[in-house]
Each structure stands twice: as structure tokens, then as C-alpha cells.
């Protein structure tokens, strides 16, 4: 099963490598990992997408929680939550292709952020699944470059990850 694990960690040099190192040392699967400071600059928030049996996910959360730099851990998948990922994509956009591109952008609520040298650069923020579909809407041969941020997420309502 796919899980989204959210962590609050001390904003210290090495915190990222402790978490990443734990995943590789214990042979846990890692699909994506994002990290950035929070509104409290002494803390960073990390979002890890991983998969495994219930036992493995339980071990992952316990082992991550054991790291001295980790302040809080939550498995977002167990709560009502929202996940989002940012995609930037460059596609060929000569006169023949343009109409199709505009149609795809409109139907996914994406945003055209640049149009130069017959190349369109498009931005889309949505779930990972939607991003996949969006990418598949283009002819493979016309895709020039794809960059994805990895998933971030947040629990909804009263569930708050804080110290």
C-alpha cells in the first residue's frame, strides 16, 4: 500500500541524510521525498511517499520517530488529507500542435507559463495521479522535458502536525 508520511525535523545540517540514510540502510522503499522549512524556521517539514505492508509501514514510522532529529511523525494516509504535487513540462508547440495543447491545458486547469522557440512550458499542481494523466495526454514524441516536485500533503481540519 502507498503511504504518505509527514515529518517535522530539526532544521539542522544532516537531518535530511539521517532520514534518507535510514530508508536505504533498512531497504525501505522511497517513491518521493520533499523537504523545506516551515513557518517556524527552526523546523523543516518532510513528506515521504513510500509503500509496503502494514508491518513495514509501522516499522518505518517507528524507526523514523527514533531518529533524534525527528520531532513528529504522522502517516497522512490514515487521516483525511490532501496531497499535491507540482509538475513543470515542456512540449513541442508548432502551429499544427498548438490547438491540441490549448485544449489539454484547459481541461486540466493547467497554466501556460512560457511560449517561446515553438516550445510551451506548462505548470500543473494536482495529485500525482492527475499529473500522470496530464503527461499521458501529450504525444510522447512531443514531450521535451518533465520535472516533478514530489508529493507534499497536509491533513484536513483539526489534525495538525506541530510540536
Amino acid at each position: 500500500m502507498r503511504h504518505i508520511i509527514s515529518l517535522l525535523v530539526e532544521n539542522e545540517a544532516g537531518a535530511l541524510s539521517r532520514v534518507a540514510g535510514l530508508f536505504s540502510a533498512r531497504a525501505y522503499n522511497i517513491e518521493s521525498l520533499t523537504v523545506a522549512p516551515t513557518n517556524d524556521s527552526s523546523m523543516s517539514r518532510m513528506t515521504i511517499v513510500t509503500s509496503g505492508s502494514d508491518n513495514i509501514i509501522e516499522q518505518i514510522t517507528k524507526q523514523v520517530d527514533k531518529l533524534v532529529d525527528v520531532i513528529r511523525v504522522v502517516d497522512l494516509s490514515e487521516l483525511k488529507h490532501v496531497e499535491r504535487e507540482l509538475l513543470l513540462i515542456k512540449v513541442m508547440a508548432d502551429s499544427k500542435l498548438r490547438a491540441g495543447i490549448e485544449q489539454i491545458i484547459a481541461s486540466f486547469n493547467a497554466r501556460l507559463i512560457d511560449d517561446s522557440d515553438n516550445i510551451c512550458t506548462i505548470e500543473l499542481t494536482d495529485t500525482g495521479e492527475k499529473l500522470e494523466k496530464f503527461i499521458q495526454s501529450f504525444d510522447k514524441n512531443n514531450i521535451i522535458e518533465v520535472v516533478r516536485s514530489g508529493v507534499t500533503g497536509i491533513a484536513l481540519g483539526k489534525n495538525i502536525l506541530q510540536v
Binding site: A13, G14, S17, R18, G21, A25, V68, D69
Partner: peptide, 14 residues
């Protein structure tokens, strides 16, 4: 030293 010891310490500091 921090990198080399990381997987075999409870914690480390520089």
C-alpha cells in the same frame, strides 16, 4: 566522520 558513523550511532554531532 558524521557521515561515516551515521548508520552505526544513536546520534552524532559536528
Amino acid at each position: 566522520a558524521v557521515g561515516i558513523s551515521r548508520p552505526c550511532v544513536k546520534h552524532n554531532f559536528l
